[in-house]
Design a protein around this nucleic acid. Sequence first.
DNA 1: ATCGAACGGCGTACGCCGTACGCTCAACAT
DNA 2: ATGTTGAGCGTACGGCGTACGCCGTTCGAT
Lengths: 242, 242
Amino acid sequence: MPIWARPEPAVRRPRFTRDQIAAAALEIADAEGFEAVSMRRIAAKLGAGTMSLYRYIATKGDLIALMGDALLGETLLAEDELPADWRAAIAVVARRTRSALLAHPWALQSALGDAAAAGVELGGPNRLCRFELALLALSGAPLTSSGKLDLLALLDDFVYGHVLNAAETSARTAAAQAVGDDQQAPAEFLSEQLLSGRYPRLQALAAEPDAPRLADASRLDERFEIGLAALIDGACARLGGG
Amino acid sequence: MPIWARPEPAVRRPRFTRDQIAAAALEIADAEGFEAVSMRRIAAKLGAGTMSLYRYIATKGDLIALMGDALLGETLLAEDELPADWRAAIAVVARRTRSALLAHPWALQSALGDAAAAGVELGGPNRLCRFELALLALSGAPLTSSGKLDLLALLDDFVYGHVLNAAETSARTAAAQAVGDDQQAPAEFLSEQLLSGRYPRLQALAAEPDAPRLADASRLDERFEIGLAALIDGACARLGGG
DNA sequence: ATCGAACGGCGTACGCCGTACGCTCAACAT
DNA sequence: ATGTTGAGCGTACGGCGTACGCCGTTCGAT
């Protein structure tokens, strides 16, 4: 039922591959955003008729699943890129995942939505590969099997959430720098709200001399490292290891 | 420019309120999913013409922003619901956020996408309220202002990521229990993949006697608590507090 | 009380979307 | 040489967001 369970058509002489189709979709998503990815656009990019794609793919959900798995492929590392220390190793996996997702801001959109859920089922080969790699990274960790699964899930929670909020932050700052005129209104609205007195602590915080920015893109890296370290150490201790 | 900066029309006698429109959208999203929310559906539910909605809302992105902020309203707590201990207090805020988001699985979809980004800008009143509440919870914490911001961002990262992955997991298990026939194929595909030998550690893990489930919905609560505690303690220590 | 202007409500239309259906015609088996 | 198959895809349908402009009501001014 999942797309990876069905072999590619390959019956006669197919003009395309699922990989080609997914690659075209990736390109469009990177260049113009996730919602620019449509069957017609992909077909046009490949020089094919729109409906031809349906010889290779049952539904758009399948395509999205393919895109998501292709993206996960970018998170993979060779085994020898993993440090020997398991903490360092799993941190490398997490950092790599983060940078791959940040490089493709549409990544999380492909994971949400009913269309995606229909096709994802249990994840594609690259997802399994990533899982395998993560288990390898943890092979020296003093954790039970289910403890390892918990730690991996915890780290994925954090990484995905970090990317989600980082994408929102950067979209905001990007929008703020757009016309230059548009950034006036939101800023005005915010300071107006602050001055309303309904948010005393927020107001006080904004009034501080060092004035930490509320949505500060420059601290994203440092924040990620802090959370990563806290989770690896803390979760490991709480999961019964050392 | 953000929708909250513009007052409601209110010039003559408007038949609707933004709140009513947002409420109708919420109802549809809860009942039939996020992608069932369309201008036509909302208008029909309100007994209005489709285009009438545009008297109250500039674009669908605005509507989505409204929905997101309404949802954030569910995460709010009264001040006296906060424990005195700052660690306990911020944990309560995080737990409340988690349960509100889990109750509305479409929540994250509303936060993603270009349509949403256009309207969100700096967040609505409820978002500001939540921020204020979180600052109140942290008022006793031995952290600098920017340390508090970092901790809050870190916790939001974790909570949102947790919900994201939990939603995916539950969507998967829900889909698995759908027809009963469909669950056969994915399971077969997975075990086939495992037996291929390309994923030795995954295979070994699946073969263990206690057999921890790969996507285990039953451990979600415990995992959340572990991550929460690890982040609060670890991040606080690393941010220079006690 | 009357009337002009203003404005809320919304019908229509356009250009997108995903995809069901069925035709055409090249490539293969015989 | 011929029959069969299936890849490629043109057309069409129902849905989407929303631009545009008409209509009838309501309000302020007289």
